[in-house]
Amino acid sequence: MKITRRTFLKVSGATAVGTVLSGLGFDLSPAEVYAQTLRIKGAKETTSICCYCSVGCGIIVHTDAKGKVINAEGDPDHPISEGALCAKGGSSYQIAINPNRLQKVRYRAPNSGGWKEVSWEWALNKIAANIKKSRDASFTEKNAAGQVVNRTNGIASVGSAAMDNEECWLFQKFLRSLGIIYIEHQARI
């Protein structure tokens, strides 16, 4: 049986009915045990940090035997968040499990009305050729005052605070090697 969140609530509700009343009114322990079994049965735990705001809350991601994300929840060992997450962090597994994710490389030709699926190889080759063309056409060795500037005036870049540190560092290295000076991202806005 496929257990969705709603059917799970029905199932656990039914389990709770008829249990011995505790001081709180219900003895939920059988339902809790059942829930635990369902959720983490065979699941692998991976620690992560939330991708949204800058608090840096700890997240534990659960993946099933096939490597599919089945849950993400607060990391109780994390000293800042102590297991808590906000509405966004608590929904974050839906980034992974989401039919709207971009899954293909897409290309929109000039003046075209739609996307076309392309391969990585094709796209990266064409982007590299575009970079070279724009760079070679706009490369400026000296400015109007005759000072050496060795820069590419014809390409700009924005992004990204959504990348990891290592990617940010590598990206600035990539951009500066091309001579780009118009380098900006979220921190400016």
Partner: peptide
């Protein structure tokens, strides 16, 4: 769209939980 010359490459990337690395709070 017919009047817009811009070529666009839309490249799909991994989300935070699909890669390894550090972030600074």
């Amino acid at each position: 769209p017919k009047k817009i010359k811009t070529e666009v490459f839309q490249l799909p990337c991994a989300a935070f939980l699909e890669k390894e690395g550090s972030i600074t709070n």
